[in-house]
Amino acid sequence: MHELSVCQALVDQLADLARREAAQRVTAAVLRVGPMSGIVPDLLLHAFPFASAETVADGAELRFEHAPVRVACRRCGAETDAEPGRLVCGACGDWQTRLVSGDELLLVSVELER
């Protein structure tokens, strides 16, 4: 699963941060993961202990910020909720929308033990 690759990238980022901040340990990391990112938060949670074993992020808590799927309609201008498999405008039904939220795959913040 590609969540392991993503987890390894996350652990590398956490290790870099810890080094730059002269921290001993990463105790928590906050992620913002949208449904349209292609990454499943639960699978990240499962992969994280393996990817972080014996690193500065070993035992860190992963927390997720919700990122709803939202689209802005190019035709009527409305901003509405949408389903991942159907990104049409919730107001007028047009398909010509722009995703404004829901594909995030971000490391938002970390908590460090110095």
């Binding site: 901040e21 928590a28 971000l106 490391l107 913040s109 970390v110 908590e111 460090l112």
Partner: peptide, 9 residues
């Protein structure tokens, strides 16, 4: 003491 990162994974 949280450090804001805002970086793509």
């Amino acid at each position: 003491g949280a450090v804001v990162v805002l970086q793509r994974l």
